[in-house]
Write a protein that binds this DNA or RNA. Sequence first.
DNA 1: CGGATAGTGGACTTATGGTGCAGTAATCCC
DNA 2: GGGATTACTGCACCATAAGTCCACTATCCG
Lengths: 203, 203
Amino acid sequence: MARTSSKREHILDIAEKGVLSKGFSATSIDEIIFEAGVSKNGFFYHFRDKNALAKAMLQRYLDNEEAILDRVFEKGKTSADNPLDAFLTGLTHLSRLMADLPNGHPGCLVATMAYSERLYDKSVRALNKEAVLSWRKRFTNALKEIAARHHLQDDVEIEHVADMITSVIEGGIIQSRALNEPRLLSEQILVVRSYIKLLFQPQ
Amino acid sequence: MARTSSKREHILDIAEKGVLSKGFSATSIDEIIFEAGVSKNGFFYHFRDKNALAKAMLQRYLDNEEAILDRVFEKGKTSADNPLDAFLTGLTHLSRLMADLPNGHPGCLVATMAYSERLYDKSVRALNKEAVLSWRKRFTNALKEIAARHHLQDDVEIEHVADMITSVIEGGIIQSRALNEPRLLSEQILVVRSYIKLLFQPQ
DNA sequence: CGGATAGTGGACTTATGGTGCAGTAATCCC
DNA sequence: GGGATTACTGCACCATAAGTCCACTATCCG
């Protein structure tokens, strides 16, 4: 067979879709291998067990998300002359990106894994934690850069505001799904943008 | 046996703990009945199938949450003389309530069910949707009452701000779990409180 | 004392996660 | 061009899980 595995990525695609619509344990290996057109041992060749599948899925998801966030906020920086406008523009781009997804955001693996932690081993839980911490770091750094130039209009900790951006995105995805309102997430991002604006812009 | 079933509630308690820590399908009926000290047919006497268990769990969870929110925001109203202060005080109470949970919030069933929707039938999905809509209604009504007296400091839709309160709570729970930081949720509620304050209070 | 409520016990079916073993086709390295 | 490595297929097997069927029982209410 081919040297570079195309089936591995195919398995991950199918597994991710299943996990985000039914949860991890309801997504059976038999079902994955059937859809991927691969044998059972073909699956176990790539992933020692289901936990290894979870870890690979999560790692791939995080790499992809990071690249998207990098791109969006980099784009914000080029079109603005101060950190506040850059960040606000970045959030606008992110909102539009979410609005352009035809069926809404497919769901966040970090959220599903946080809600079924007992299923995974230490390494997956550590990876999930690291991901949330990296978002905290990303947004905290951006907000600190803003705070260096603009006075805070309320007594809140920068780090908590950074976490709130993540909260709104995760919560927005949940509500989008529960209500079947794909646009809700992008609207929520604009609301948190409104907060950042009010928090740093004197009226 | 006793007339009023104590075992039914016991089953629901154990099932809820399992679902919030491992997910729905990973929480086996065999495991539930073992922990509850009930026979398999004892389980199926109360719940036609696993879907009926999910529905009963969710209904009980929602009734409980509604009672808590009613209490918290009612308390806010008695200690303030205007709707803005009443709502801000309610959020402070809610934040404190979450901070006082020794192991943090146990998790939201609405979120887990939104993330494994394909597992449940129409009635469960409808109940989940109804729950999110009831939160939207609750917060929208409160915010509209405020908006009748205070001028909005930014161009945002009240309903989106209402949804944001739910977003921050759901997202706060996810991050609390992922990071194992029980206090994060209560901090997040104070940040959304800060937004409501800035949004209605002229500087 | 009859009927409803709240169960127990056991046998059975199908699906799922996972293991073990034997074998194969392509490719890379020397 | 030959041996190791990669990327698989096929089959048999095991324990656990959801769910069904049937027969039976204990308690309470009117």
